[in-house]
Design a protein around this nucleic acid. Structure first.
Lengths: 240, 240
DNA sequence: ACCCCGATATATCGGTCCGATACATCGATC
DNA sequence: GATCGATGTATCGGACCGATATATCGGGGT
């Protein structure tokens, strides 16, 4: 799970551990940050597997996070301590060809894990790397998952003893219904061929888009499995 | 986390492992079930700490001799494997006085953990065991947490690259706003003294209550920290 | 000049939880 | 009467987390 996230970030640009952690929080959904106790071991695993490789680098100058490289020229400055620990200079990691393949593999895998929500969010964040049919498959799997959850919640609501438990289950139901209608909107958009290209859209150089990505409020379809499709309204502009 | 859930369930009735797992899914929120690989070790930990104690039981008929063995009669039947494993009879666990104290301690603790959502849901499910002021404290802590999450999401929406990431962040925002308004409804109810008693309400013997526990839809308040209270509208029926 | 502090940065340790697996009994169904 | 699925207890390796140790850097205060 962490591997997928790391590889996805390194796909776009070379990064060192500390920065990686920040991106995991900022650009991917990882609430409450990822622990170093899982990040560094994950990097070690990936390095051992040949999916990423490290390039010694210097802290100052270099890489103001444009695209591409920036590792080489920094290496000649860093001699300081011999080798093992500490020394100086951050370890900047880059993805390898092997890593790219591993990424595709992990992204396309149909896992049925415990924290499915996290994994789905992560996969969706990288959906641009998937072929359209795989995207639809992923969304349909998620949809089935949510339908199953709603069925489960229907049972749970029966067993709710006090009003706290009742309120909790009801809120979970509403959340699941909201999730479901969102997924169905995404599915409808996907099937209509309305999906973005990997690269930012041509026409606006900055590419900042503030419209609420095409779809608006809903009406939760609670009944079993009725694919509700809504027409998206063309976007309104929000950005000042 | 699991300890709290286990103790909370054992507080109401003695249970064995397998049944405990089912209850964790059915009555508490644990989606995708708890693994035995965490349940049994957790029970062992609790037993070692003296928080629960096991009573050997027989599935059919009754216990011949309460404590101790039961391995004897099984041993002559099942020469097969040597000894230690298997035997017969489920281990039924009950909570001890020490366990009750541990439960109160875990329930009242103000942890700031990774999976806060899970923990909060769990605590809310046991809120009836908390004194009113502790309940309000718990809800306020949760509220602050969600406000912080919304601020974070405000930043994340800026960094959203493609329309998938954008849709994801927007959906997370809506979910967080929905959560927040729910918490605020709970807080308002709590402060108004409108909270349930541990025992089911007198008046209806079966105690089934179909009303949606008093509060309904919302209007998400996005602005920083404005305590919004809304009047509930009576609700629609969903069950066919 | 000095020092201390917070941010940056890498790494490890113990513990919790998960997924897979193994083993064993029981009640049905065929 | 044999197989199959549900019930039931248990362990192992691996992933992740929280706390902690260590070190460097830039800046602010005195």
């Amino acid at each position: 799970m962490l591997e997928l996230a790391i590889l996805g970030l390194l796909k776009e640009q070379e990064l060192h551990g500390y920065e990686l952690k920040k991106r995991l929080v900022e650009t991917l959904g990882f609430v409450s940050g990822v622990s170093f106790g899982s990040l560094y071991p994950a990097l070690s695993r990936l390095e051992a597997a040949g999916a990423v490789k490290a390039v010694e680098s210097r802290s100052l100058s270099a890489v103001p996070h444009t695209g591409s490289l920036g590792g080489e020229l920094a290496a000649f400055r860093a001699r300081k301590t011999v080798a093992p620990r500490g020394s100086r200079g951050k370890k900047v990691y880059g993805i390898t060809e092997r890593g790219e393949r591993l990424f595709d593999e992990l992204l396309a895998a149909e896992t049925q894990s415990s924290d499915d929500d996290r994994v789905f969010n992560l996969r969706l964040a990288f959906a641009r790397y998937l072929p359209p049919d795989a995207r639809i498959g992923m969304l349909e799997r998620r949809r089935a998952q949510l339908v199953e959850r709603l069925i489960h919640l229907r049972i749970r609501v029966q067993a709710a003893r006090d009003s706290y438990a009742r309120s909790l289950v009801e809120h979970d139901q509403e959340a699941a219904e909201h999730d479901l209608s969102w997924i169905e909107r995404l599915l409808a958009a996907e099937r209509a061929g309305r999906h973005p290209e990997p690269e930012p859209q041509l026409g606006s150089p900055t590419g900042n888009v503030a419209e609420r990505s095409g779809i608006s409020r809903h009406g939760p379809t609670i009944s079993g499995l009725r694919p509700s499709n809504h027409l998206p309204s063309p976007e309104e502009d929000i950005n000042p």
